[in-house]
Design a protein around this nucleic acid. Sequence first.
DNA 1: TATGAATGAGGTTTCATTCAT
DNA 2: TATGAATGAAACCTCATTCAT
Lengths: 200, 200, 200, 200
Amino acid sequence: MPLSEAQKEKMKQKRARILETAIVLFAEAGYEGTTIKQVAAKAGISFGSVFTYFETKETLFHAAVTEPLDHFSKKILDFDDASEKPLEELENMIGQHIETYASLSAYLNLVSYVISHHNLFPETFEELDAFHETLKGKVARLVENGQQKGVLLEQEIEHTVTGYTSLLMGLRLNLIDEPASDLWAKFIPIALQLFGPRYH
Amino acid sequence: MPLSEAQKEKMKQKRARILETAIVLFAEAGYEGTTIKQVAAKAGISFGSVFTYFETKETLFHAAVTEPLDHFSKKILDFDDASEKPLEELENMIGQHIETYASLSAYLNLVSYVISHHNLFPETFEELDAFHETLKGKVARLVENGQQKGVLLEQEIEHTVTGYTSLLMGLRLNLIDEPASDLWAKFIPIALQLFGPRYH
Amino acid sequence: MPLSEAQKEKMKQKRARILETAIVLFAEAGYEGTTIKQVAAKAGISFGSVFTYFETKETLFHAAVTEPLDHFSKKILDFDDASEKPLEELENMIGQHIETYASLSAYLNLVSYVISHHNLFPETFEELDAFHETLKGKVARLVENGQQKGVLLEQEIEHTVTGYTSLLMGLRLNLIDEPASDLWAKFIPIALQLFGPRYH
Amino acid sequence: MPLSEAQKEKMKQKRARILETAIVLFAEAGYEGTTIKQVAAKAGISFGSVFTYFETKETLFHAAVTEPLDHFSKKILDFDDASEKPLEELENMIGQHIETYASLSAYLNLVSYVISHHNLFPETFEELDAFHETLKGKVARLVENGQQKGVLLEQEIEHTVTGYTSLLMGLRLNLIDEPASDLWAKFIPIALQLFGPRYH
DNA sequence: TATGAATGAGGTTTCATTCAT
DNA sequence: TATGAATGAAACCTCATTCAT
């Protein structure tokens, strides 16, 4: 007797709830500092049920880190690196990035935790790193575009881009308890400076 | 029977060795992921001895995070915010900062771990935060100085400074396995851009 | 709505399949080492269904040990203790016993497990023991018959019989992976020696 | 500061006590049915301490099965397979074996458990099996000796010997709660029959 | 002071059993 | 009747801490 559609839907939601809870708790206390019992309690289910949805704690951790990447990357990669107006595009991109980073406090805290401890979670880190490379590549093309069109200062592209993603992660760390707010928007022009904008 | 000077010296060294080891291990694996046994083994002593020098694991952690701050802050705050040539001073400061951040991989990884998990270590975080505020204050004064002298773009000072320290932390995170090297120096001009330098 | 005959038959077969599987697994891994999930998987049904046929794991275990006894005892007790030719009868009996023991590897392994751990399964053991007593009684009568007719050495009957069933169980243990084969038949004359056969 | 001799001695005794307890409990309830907590309680120590002496439950089990083998094998292999009076030697050997098997109830129950479940404990079984082969080899030489001297019936030696060790194990199983007593001695002449003794 | 054996709380995970579908 | 998600007791094992030597 296969599960009914309604049941499947319910399970999907439960799984999502566990994952959300796990992201928050892993972000707050790290892998070892988080217990399955805590996750279960906060997700409102018995701790045994966590194992219905995730084989092991490790599996849960991996899923908590990598599954949101899809959604995240869509928002983060949504800009045109071949734009005719690269300066405007860059500014929009930065705005979108800042907004996204502002709104994903727990998740990005978790991401930086994995990066810091990449030796402990090599496979999980791998996926994050792959995305990071993709992001840097696309931003690099936009910067190159801007430099060629003369609206950005000619400086070493690769380092500029690394500096930019570093700034984003660093902001997320420094503004750790700062909810998404107008404050974040204030950093848009600052971040833009990094690229050496040239207005004519 | 009071301890001889030689004994005192030996104990001091042992304590220092434990602390160094603890920094590395706490940085690699976090608080819960690190065991006293590991620290003792890597420091080359019996695990019982760790408790001779540090009452509890928590004490050790706190010491590992806060004790290096003195040395660190000396290097980091060593610039003149009232300099007559603020742009040069800024550039030198950035160089010194980058160099310091490049050379303290494990320690700064640990610092960012504490910031990320500040709810778990409120008192330890407090001390880091106090230093961070001091640093931002002094950099802010230098920036103000530079803006007044017209060598820096007039932009919101507080956010500029937060952006700058964010960039430093972000770089440390992104270049996590990058040893101190020429590569790091490449980020000096990039970081400088953040402040909007104006050459005449 | 009463079940149709076909359904009843199907259920009977399913129950038998579970029991067979349980015998093999309990024999291989013991009571605690065997899980209902394993039994269900190997029997090709959902683990929930096992509980449709057997109330608890204990019930299943008891059934796995005792239900085959009927069939087993029929084969094992199939000899004539009042035979006119007790030596021939004895030899035939041994042959039949050896053959049966050879062919019921898993089941007899399970039986010896229950005997070994009789304190854990007192009621189950009771039934095995009752059968064992029956068997020993009947063999004892045949031996007595043989001794009276002068074709068996006059030796303590009870111990001879215990020795004989011990030998059977011991062989089953020692030849644990030996499938039913000619090899087993080689033990018939050896076993016969135990009774001190006297040929005239 | 190394441990004092007195401490070492104490630890040795504690280890032995754990092992003894483990033998009894593993024999009674099998591997899965025995808990470290039970072993610790019965040995009169905290359950954490068990892990000071044995890394894992598996290690403890292996030690419980194999360590007594040394002592056991000395008693069991103590006969002269080249004796000038093989029939007497055989009888003495049987007496010694029966006595030993009678006195080692728990341990031999454990041994038969391992044999029954050899797939679960392949390495542990290996050691038992090696000893069994040694024993069978030596008994076989004594039997050959006896057959050559005409005091034993000429029958297949290998199977005779396997029959004999099977009988011993089977007796241990059947007399599971029978303490060492005169009863056991009654089985000496029965066992002897297996070899077909010829008196002249 | 240095050592490491002893302790037991608490972690992850397994699994028999219940029960809604 | 058949299924398998939900539950929580209990297993093994780790580890901070204590304390005797």
